[in-house]
Structures are given as C-alpha cells and as structure tokens.
Design a protein around this nucleic acid. Sequence first.
DNA 1: ACCGTTCTCCAAAGATCTTTGGAGGAATGG
DNA 2: CCATTCCTCCAAAGATCTTTGGAGAACGGT
Lengths: 222, 222
Amino acid sequence: MNEERRHHLFDELAVVGKAFGSPKRLELVELLAQGERTVDGLARAAGMGMSTVSAHLQVLKLANLVRTRRDGTKVFYRLAGDDVAHLYAAMRTVARERSADVSQALEAYLNLPGSDEVGLVTREELERMLAEGEVTLLDVRPPEEYLAGHIPGARNTPLGTLDSELAGLRQAPTVVAYCRGSFCVMAHDAVRILGGAGVEARRLEDGMLEWRTAGLPVEAGA
Amino acid sequence: MNEERRHHLFDELAVVGKAFGSPKRLELVELLAQGERTVDGLARAAGMGMSTVSAHLQVLKLANLVRTRRDGTKVFYRLAGDDVAHLYAAMRTVARERSADVSQALEAYLNLPGSDEVGLVTREELERMLAEGEVTLLDVRPPEEYLAGHIPGARNTPLGTLDSELAGLRQAPTVVAYCRGSFCVMAHDAVRILGGAGVEARRLEDGMLEWRTAGLPVEAGA
DNA sequence: ACCGTTCTCCAAAGATCTTTGGAGGAATGG
DNA sequence: CCATTCCTCCAAAGATCTTTGGAGAACGGT
C-alpha cells in the first residue's frame, strides 16, 4: 500500500527520464535549447517527418519539459525553463566525460577531416574582447536561431553566406565564430571555411547553450 | 555521411538518457547514491528479482554510470562518480518542480497519514547545531548505508530499532532525523514514530544525497 | 462558408525493452 | 575437486516505443 506509492513516484520520475532516452528527442531538445520553433521548423531542421516530430513533442510535453504557444495555425514549442536546458547540458557533460563511446562519436562528428583546434576562445576571454570592442563575433547558426537569441554584439553569418563576407572579414580584427554549443559542428565548419579562404578565425570553445546556462546576457531580434 | 555521424552521436547520448528512463533503474540509482552495494543487496532492498537487477545494472554499466568491484564471490556496484549523483539529483529536482504529477506522487508517498511538517532543519542549521554540539543526530537508514557513509556525528538508529531508543532520546537535546534524501520516506516515519512516543524530533529537510552533492564532509564506517 | 495551412490523433507494423526461470561461470572453502 | 554462493547470460513471452500515412481539428484568409 506504501510500496505502491513508491512505485508510482518512480514511475512518474521515469517519465522525465524516458523523455531524454531517445536520440530523436535529444536532437529536438538540442534545437529547442536555441529558442522556440514550430513543429515543421523542427521537422525540417532535424530531417524528420512531421508526425514523428509531433509524437516526440507530445512525450516531452507530457514530461513537462516543453511548453507551447499558438500563433495562428502555427504552434511554437519551447523548453519549459532554464532548468531544462541546464539538465540537458549536465547530461551531455556527464555522458561525454563518462562514456568513451560518446566522446569518440563526438570527435568523429566534429573533427571531420582533421583536428584544427588552434585558437580556442573561452567565454571569459570573449567577454573581455567584447568589452574592449576588438573582436568580430560571428554567429553562424541559421537566422531563426540567431533571432531567438544571440550573444550581444554578434553578427549573423550563416554557413551558406560566409563566402560573400570574405572581403569584409579580411580587414576585420580578430574573428571569432560560435554556434549552438559543444555538440554543434557549424562553428568548426566556419573556422575551416574561413581558414581555407585566408581569413584567420578562432572558435568559441562552446556555444550559445553554454552561454545561456552560464547566465550571461542574451540579445534577441536583429 | 555527416548526417550519419550526427545520428551516431545522439544514439550514444541516448544510451545515457535511456539509463534514467526506467523506474526500476531509478530506484537502483537512488540506492547506489547511498553507497556501494552487492547485486542481491540491491535486489533485497528494492524488492526485485536478481536477474532483473542484474539486467538493469548492465544497462547502467553500458552507459558508464556505474562501476563494479569484486570481492570474493560478491560484486559491488557503485555510481561511477559524483557527477552521476549530481545528475540524478538535478533530474529529480527538475521533475519535481516541472511536473505536477511527480510532486503529487511524492506528497502521496511521503505524507502518508497527514502532513507533519513542523520543525524542518536546513543543512546550514544542522551544520551550526553540530558545530555547537547541541544536537542528537539520528541516521535512520539501514546499517549498510550508514556504514557506507553518513553525516559526521550521526548515530545509526534504523527505523526498526527506534522503540528501544526511546528512553535515551527523551533526555537528549534537540533530536534531528535524516535518511537518504528528499525522495525517501524513512525520516518522515521516524519523526512520526518518535512524536507518537512523546519524543519531540525534527527532520532534516533533505538527506544524505543532498549532503553529499553539496560537498559536505562524509564519515564512513562505525 | 469554404479552402489551404499547420498540427494532432489514430491505427498498425515493426523495433526495442523488460521480466523470468534456468543454465552456466567465477570465486571460495572444505 | 566438489559443493556452495553469488552473479551473469540466455531465450522467450509480454509489454512498450517508434514510425508512418492518412483522417480530422484548429485557425486564418477569401
């Protein structure tokens, strides 16, 4: 009779755990950590079918990890709070530090051709550089994510548009690129592309997710 | 070709998530957070079959969340590190704060007859009381867990033995009881039992798990 | 009212997870 | 070297999850 209640408690707790137990759902959380998105925005970005995305979002919603907002025919999903982003980030960190499989998979994903880890910039360094105004900060994520929130002072230059920015960047002071976070490949790609075109660029060691969870200021809109 | 690598990364990450996605496994993690245990120690404490426990432990091991140590014919399992206990605690907190179902299930489990939440003691208060030596601190967990680590200065008085301690406790200064943590019912029961026998006891607001993850000193053995 | 858009819900097939008893492996002690 | 203890592995049944296409609901525009 009390045993039952304990089981019920852990059953409910497992609902939250299960929500983090599917790769597809984790991809969605990773995207939602960048800001709110519509269902088909997510489907498009993650390369999944709409029904599939919707089903996974229901699971996240049942676990109270996401909330929704309706605007016309569109439904926007967002994380239910900062604590959810924190939890996701914590899980990622534990996974990466504990599991050799995770860290290998991460390296394989990020270091596609070969390692180019010269000139990493820490958050603290970046803050200092921004305060002194001696940095060109590039947010290389897709525009929607930039609009939903970016580091104050950053300019949105999605990967596809980098080519047309080369001329300007050649004369710029220190160029620093960032993207979603430490599980995101875009800033790696950007630094590689820029380097190949003769623009020396450095990379922020992590990204927007970590910037947010560190409680640093975020700017939204253009 | 790169898409594949991303999927592989999230697949690996989900292995860790899935490990937290089963109620039985969460019960085991809750027990392991108190200290190392043998397989059948866990089976006994959680009321599960040995094969079942062993299977769940393999899942946790595959996710690198637990480690094993062999002593004779026995195999001891323990959490792989403090970060795992932290992650579990963080998940519990998010679940409790976000999900009404979890907090209701928790209340139903803890407040069995009715609420008796008078005289909660915070960690800070307890530290002060311990420093001034004006407290009788009761660890009401089973002996194995007490031996594996307890708050310095605590005396082990498992629930079943409380009756025989009543005489002594009536003369003791402030009595404070604690158990595993905020999802554990034993300290609630202890305060209720003591109160019913005319011993005024207070309860530490959480328990050993939170004490540990706060980085406070832990004493092992007798 | 009707249509197009966006999303949710449903049903069914396929995949994965959980539980179980029992066989088998590892270590110990006689 | 045999018996015992403690644990892991195996196989199979049952339960649960995931994915899918398509029906249908909510909404805005015409």
